[in-house]
Structures are given as C-alpha cells and as structure tokens.
Nucleic acid binder design. Structure first.
Length: 194
DNA sequence: ATTGAGATTGACT
DNA sequence: GTCAATCTCAATA
C-alpha cells in the first residue's frame, strides 16, 4: 500500500543514534487513535547512547527490566514513566545489543482538527506530548516497522535549518551535559525551548 | 525495608 | 528562581 512505500524500515532504524536523531526531524509520526489516523511532524529530538553517555538509562550497557527494550534491534518504541507521572516516547535505534534511543521531545500536529491543540500548550515537552497523544506503557516495545497503529513515514519534507544544542534536564550527567545531542527545527513553534 | 535521584511539568515566590 | 507530585531502580541496611 501507499503508506508503506514511505514508511521508514528496519535498515533506517539500525543506523547510529546521532544520524537518525537529526534525520528524523521533518518525518511524520502516524498514529491510529480510536480508528482515526492522526499525523504529527517530528520537530525536536534528543539522542541517548547507552555505552558512553551518563545521561542514558542504559549507561555502561546497564540492563534492567526497564532498559531491556533499548537492547533490541532499531525500530522498536521505548516508553518509560518519568518522575512517577509522565510518559516519554523514545525510539530504539542501532543493532541488536547496542542500547541507543531517541527521545521525541516535540511534534507538530498536521491534521486540521488538531491545530487547536496548540492553544492548550503552555509549555511543550515530552511529557505533555505523550499525554496529548495518549501514549502510555501499552506502546512500550511496539515495532514501528510492522505496527498498523503507529509508524513513521518520510513524506519528503526537509527542514530549512536544524539547530543542535545541549540536551535538557540532565544536570547529573557530568561530562555528557555538554554533548550537542539535541536537535530541533529552527523557528518551529512547537519546539519546547529555544 | 528504606532512601534518594531522575530524559517533567505546573504552581508559586 | 523554587517546589512538589509520585513510579522505578540502585544503593544501603
């Protein structure tokens, strides 16, 4: 079918986390909610690399019940609960046993009916994003390359300018604080912070 | 068994 | 700028 031609596949998600984090900007997240297809353009991401990144849940390949999904092959969704109250949507990338994931920090609603949502948004961020999209632990470990209810497509949109900067709220991560692993589309109003 | 910290957010000083 | 809400995990006992 048409949608599957543009759908990002396994080989795409098996690339390195920094490559995919930047390239995902402008791609479209498709979600079926109550039988209705909703579309959101990805406008802000952050890269987390298990091996050398103190900010990552899987730092030094730390494997727990929670981080286990990060060791899977790229293309799987990683959802976790942060501060006991908000969910965060991540995409696992790279090959089996290489724990890397991309935090989706902000999206732009593309459907007419969704535009009004922006009025509700005082501050943007990964927690509110999941609340708006109804993402909870039931999405954990879902495969973006095979699922019919959630997947990502390349519709040819190319961001004019991409900003790279330090990641947000990882003050505990020592030298990793300064890694320029946050990416966002310049000027997009849904980006959490500029 | 208990404690402390965290990839967040909204309310408040 | 500060603080608290409240779940998971690691360190401590």
């Amino acid at each position: 079918m048409m949608g599957d031609k543009m759908r990002l596949d396994r080989s795409y998600f098996c690339q390195d986390v920094l490559t995919v984090s930047e390239d995902l900007l402008g791609k479209v997240l498709n979600m079926k909610i109550d039988g209705e297809l909703k579309r959101y353009r990805i406008v802000e991401t952050e890269a987390y690399c298990g091996l050398r990144d103190k900010a990552s849940h899987a730092y030094l390949n730390k494997r727990t019940k929670r981080t286990d999904v990060m060791f899977k092959e790229g293309g799987v969704i990683y959802v976790y609960l942060i501060y006991g109250m908000y969910h965060c949507l991540n995409i696992v990338v790279n090959h089996l046993d290489v724990p890397q994931a991309i935090l989706i920090r902000a999206v732009e609603p593309l459907d007419q009916g969704e535009i009004r949502l922006k009025k509700d948004i005082k501050t943007n961020g990964p927690g509110k994003l999941c609340k708006h999209l109804g993402i909870d632990m039931s999405y954990n470990q879902v495969d973006l390359t095979t699922s019919n209810s959630i997947y990502i497509t390349d519709e040819g949109y190319k961001p004019e300018e991409i900003i790279k900067g330090k990641r947000i709220n990882i003050d505990y991560a020592e030298e990793a604080i300064d890694f320029p692993w946050r990416f966002y589309i310049k000027g997009n109003r849904f980006v959490s912070k500029t």
